[in-house]
Nucleic acid binder design. Structure first.
Length: 213
DNA sequence: CTTGAGATGCCCT
DNA sequence: GGGCATCTCAAGA
């Protein structure tokens, strides 16, 4: 059993939750199989005053899940062809959410730690780099909107990370240039060293080796 | 490496 | 009708 995070984990401002979700496990149940990926990139959307947050227009049919209880999924359809999935946060019903932007397949040591063979871990259908690709890789669409992320019987849930903790890199959110002073807010969180983070990528951690000599 | 355009549908005004 | 929390490919520097 891969235990879901407790609901109180999500009942906080998204800016607190988003960095802690990097490294956590995203578990998708489709039929009887589980597909498990490690979250490597998130963004925080922090309420009606955040001009990049969908809740800036208030509570509508689309944004309604953000006003519901924390620890549920907010899925939306965008650009005519992509889905994106968020974890609804809080606190206390505040319309905060964390966009899940990228995930990585489990490496061998993490599969072993969970007692999973590669086959049992059901590798991702596609690359999960970028929020649209992440949903495609895990088969997430509006059918998962409002799913309870704190229930292991749910079609989608989130569990604590395992193995080495990620090295976090923080930067401005992607695709929100219209959001005035909120465009540059450092609310994007990445596992600096994971190859599945979307572009623009964090600066390289290791020093580029000199050529020659 | 960077920039730009097109695909494509739904929500909100 | 406008705009969008994206992605891919192609072209240029």
């Amino acid at each position: 059993m891969i235990a879901p995070l407790p609901r109180r984990f999500f009942d906080r401002n998204a800016a607190e939750v988003a960095p802690e979700l990097v490294g956590c496990l995203l578990v998708r149940r489709a039929d009887r199989a589980l597909r498990i990926a490690r979250i490597v990139e998130t963004e925080a959307y922090v309420g009606e005053h955040d001009l990049a947050c969908h809740a800036k227009v208030g509570r509508t049919a689309r944004t309604d899940p953000m006003y519901g209880p924390p620890g549920h999924a907010y899925v939306y359809f965008i650009y005519g062809m992509h889905h994106c999935v968020n974890a609804v946060c809080g606190p206390g019903g505040a319309p905060n959410a964390v966009l899940l932007r990228a995930a990585a397949p489990l490496d061998e040591s993490r599969r072993t730690a969970l007692g999973l063979t590669e086959r049992a871990a059901s590798p991702l259908l596609h690359s999960a780099t970028g929020p649209g690709n992440l949903c495609r890789a895990l088969g997430i669409d509006l059918g998962e909107n409002r799913a309870d992320l704190c229930d292991s019987k749910s079609p989608l849930w989130i569990a604590r990370g395992i193995g080495a903790a990620p090295v976090l890199w923080t930067g401005p959110r992607i695709g929100v240039d219209y959001a005035a002073e909120w465009a540059g807010a450092p609310l994007r969180f990445c596992d600096r060293d994971d190859a599945h983070v979307s572009r623009p990528r964090p600066p390289r951690a290791k020093v580029t080796p000199r050529r020659g000599r």
